[in-house]
Design a protein around this nucleic acid. Structure first.
Length: 283
DNA sequence: CTCCAGGGGTTCC
DNA sequence: GGAACCCATGGA
């Protein structure tokens, strides 16, 4: 077991269940998860993180995964003092953090996430691991490798019941396995270039690409925007993204998104949609 | 039966 | 460029 002190107010429940990671499960004494073939149970006592099932030699791995090398206290301080409304967002859920998740897993899970909801995303990811991952001695399965998935066709993934996304997953696996899309190379690129490279994968658009940049590759400035987030940003920050976010907009966005989700209504334009919809043929 | 879920590709103008 | 429509699932 490993313990890591001074985690900057890390809140596991929020961080592991906010829609950036999809394999953590709440258990009686904390959270159980599998990351790169390592099965662990984690919990907090005060500001200390306990990682049961982890080897001491993997300390750096877990510090990196939870991004505990980043000074969140200082970061929050910077956000809060830089902008009043941003401070409200931070205070709403200060313990939420951005993880550094495995590259191929993150790529796949966010491809699966498109036009989908979290419970089903989790279910599909779980089926993917059970069918194509390696069985672990502690139980559970690792996330499958790109090489393994690259041998398959979209039809082979029918068991996933992922719909059209199966085809996208195969393309992602092929491009990662071939080295056409390479994690190390991406990390060495400027953000926009890395984003463009990711978007050469079929089914990876600006949103999914930004999620991979942010949630896996530590481009802390990546800012995943969908229609909802654009609307929220306009309402909360009509003059544009606060300067205090610069360089860490993606991390700031986690606070903003959570705040917006709680305080802004999701559907405000249903009436317009209904009145403009076409007449359907009556047969 | 309809709507929706942290999208993206394709096809139009 | 951007708007409309399609894509498969499954839950509400």
């Amino acid at each position: 077991m490993i313990c890591v002190e001074n985690c900057g107010g890390l809140d596991l429940a929020v961080t592991l269940d906010c829609g950036q990671a999809f394999r953590w499960k709440s258990v009686s004494n904390g959270w159980h998860g599998i990351v790169e073939g390592r099965a662990v149970t984690v919990w907090m006592e005060g500001d200390t993180l306990f990682i049961d099932g982890a080897e001491e030699s993997d300390r750096d791995f877990w510090v990196r995964y939870f991004a505990l090398d980043l000074d969140y206290l200082a970061l929050r301080q910077r956000f809060c003092s830089g902008n009043k409304k941003l401070a409200l967002c931070v205070q709403a859920q200060p313990g939420i953090r951005v993880l550094r998740q495995p590259f191929f897993e993150t790529l796949c899970t966010f491809i699966i996430s498109q036009n989908n909801n979290i419970p089903r995303i989790r279910a599909i990811v779980e089926r993917l691991c059970e069918h194509l991952g390696e069985a672990l001695p502690q139980g559970g399965y690792s996330f499958p490798t790109a090489e393994k998935m690259a041998e398959l066709t979209a039809q082979d993934l029918a068991f996933l019941r992922a719909g059209w996304r199966a085809e996208y997953l195969i393309d992602a696996a092929k491009k990662v396995a071939s080295g056409e899309v390479d994690e190390t190379a991406l990390c060495a690129m400027p953000m926009q270039q890395a984003k463009d490279r990711l978007m050469t994968i079929k089914g990876v658009g600006p949103k999914v690409a930004d999620c991979v940049l942010l949630f896996s590759l530590s481009f802390w400035d990546a800012f995943p925007m969908d229609v909802w987030m654009k609307k929220a940003m306009q309402q909360l920050f009509p003059r544009g993204i606060p300067v205090a976010c610069r360089g860490y907009a993606g991390i700031a966005q986690q606070y903003i998104f959570d705040y917006a989700r709680k305080n802004l209504s999701r559907s405000s334009e249903k009436a317009t949609k209904k009145s403009t919809q076409k007449c359907k043929p009556t047969n």
